[in-house]
């Protein structure tokens, strides 16, 4: 074996979720959700509309308040702590520095009235960057990494195509070097050819930056290519989880078997 293989595996999960529960009145949003996400892992969450996957993602990211359970995040400087008990300023700091959230609709994650460079620079300024030249050059570098031509830096995202907007949203999210990124249907609503390019981009960024990610999608082909692990949800509960190719090739639960056998072969 070579020296590279000897990197010690960290013993603390980046995110440890325990018995997470969220109700909307009498109706269950998600319940009994527990899992560990390890550094560098990409986890997919699949399920049909109404299965609770988006509710779960929102509870994890703090966009919704969970009713019960724990979400223990191993912070860079703070070590593991339950983010559900953080104060609002602490949570905002986490969202600006260590976490990122990519919305399905880029309009929800971008400021449409601000230039592309401004969208990226704004995140940097939120964590204390003040030097205009440095911010602009970092922004320009990131536009390049997500394959947006540098001469579009002063254009507003409203002048961009859907695929470019989604790439800009990713640049805006990753510029501050987060460790954990939440993605809600990141390739939804894009043409398949644009989707492929985005998938390749995401895979490269996850690998190079050592990112962990949680991706909600209904597209089994996307999770097969992007996720190491897969969680299947139905009626607010996790009914099956495991290695992505194991869950897709040898599904154990009736619903997962139905889901996998329902995919059209191209």
């Amino acid at each position: 074996m070579n020296a590279l293989a000897q990197t010690p595996t960290p013993e603390v999960p980046l995110l440890a979720v325990r018995d997470l529960h969220k109700s909307y009145g009498a109706r269950i949003g998600c319940t009994d959700v527990s899992f560990d996400l390890w550094p560098g892992e990409v986890m997919g969450i699949v399920g049909e509309s109404g299965s609770g996957k988006s509710t779960l993602l929102s509870c994890l990211a703090g966009h919704l308040t969970a009713d019960a359970g724990q979400v223990i995040y191993d912070g860079r400087t703070t070590g593991p702590r339950d983010v559900l008990t953080l104060s609002e300023p602490e949570r905002r700091m986490l969202n600006r520095t260590e976490w990122a959230y990519v919305h399905q609709n880029p309009r929800d994650g971008l400021r449409m009235g601000v230039s592309a460079g401004g969208n990226v620079g704004e995140r940097l300024m939120a964590v204390g960057a003040r030097h205009y030249g440095a911010i602009r050059s970092t922004a320009s570098d990131w536009l390049g990494r997500v394959e947006i031509d540098a001469n579009r830096i002063d254009d507003r995202p409203s002048a961009f195509s859907g695929g470019m907007q989604q790439r800009l949203q990713i640049a805006r999210n990753l510029v501050t070097g987060p460790r954990l990124i939440f993605m809600d249907e990141p390739t939804g609503g894009l043409d398949v050819s644009v989707q492929a390019r985005l998938l390749d981009l995401l895979r490269g960024l996850v690998r190079e930056m050592g990112l962990s990610a949680i991706i909600v999608t209904h597209d089994l082909a996307v999770v097969r290519l992007l996720a190491d692990r897969l969680m299947v949800m139905k009626s607010g509960r996790v009914i099956e989880q495991g290695l992505t190719d194991q869950v897709l090739d040898d599904p154990q639960h009736a619903y997962t078997q139905l889901l996998v056998s329902s995919v059209l072969q191209v």
Binding site: M1, T9, W38, D200, D228, R229, Q246
Partner: peptide
């Protein structure tokens, strides 16, 4: 656990299957 198998596939165990599954356009 899944993460042990992920590490095993990265370092130790290779697989040449009959199918090639790749991100299109790479």
């Amino acid at each position: 656990a899944p993460r042990e198998i992920i590490a095993l596939r990265r370092d130790t165990l290779g697989y040449v299957s009959q199918f090639l599954r790749v991100v299109p356009r790479v």
